[in-house]
Amino acid sequence: MTNINGKAYAMNAVTPMKTWKTPILLAVFFLIGVFKSAQKGLVDLSFIHFARWVVVQNNQFPRLAPEQPEEQLKYDYLLFFSNFNGTWNEYIDAFSAVLSSGLNLIWRWSEKFPGSVPVTAFKRYISLVQFDTDYYYTAYPYATTSDVKAAIRVDDALQEFANRAAGLTPEEFQQSYLQLLVKVQADIGALGPAPMGT
């Protein structure tokens, strides 16, 4: 399935919005951008590499030639693209359980959004508005975003340790090495297989 590449899942969704609601949503995103604490939930979930929301106003669909028919849309559209780890069901369940108020704040302006709780209605809505990916590339399919963050911490710690270790006696080296292991113990380990299922 092209939505999946190794441990990453590419989600695309499009939802219609009445045009008068668009400025409200833009203000919401502006505030989320300014107040970084509002992004804490996304960071804490730690299974999203990258995600984006794109508001396409009804007159913004690119028209590049006179022979291309002009779009005549009543609604503006909210596009959502995510690169997450795990299965679709796990993702939607976690979103609904952990970020329900944040999601509601973003999607409540879309037509017929049922709310992110209860999760069954939310899943039905996402299934309806999702469209599939034709080609999906990632430079590191075998790594989750937690793997990437752990690897960066290990790499940084190791570089720092190697610089510090030069010139130590064997006993001092061992002591310092054990301190390094304590520091990175939560970040080492195998990368593990990709999840099975949907």
């Binding site: 990453a8 590419a10 695309n12 499009v14 939802t15 219609p16 590499h49 990258f50 849309l73 609604y75 559209y77 693209f81 690169n83 879309s110 037509e111 017929k112 809505y125 309806l128 508005v129 469209f131 599939d132 990916t133 034709d134 080609y135 999906y136 590339y137 990632t138 430079a139």
Partner: peptide
């Protein structure tokens, strides 16, 4: 390129009446 995708978007979605 960390991640990229190509998607053919056929149409927008009708979410049901009264939309």
């Amino acid at each position: 390129t960390h991640f990229c995708r190509l998607v053919v978007m056929d149409d927008v979605v009708f979410v049901g009446s009264p939309a």
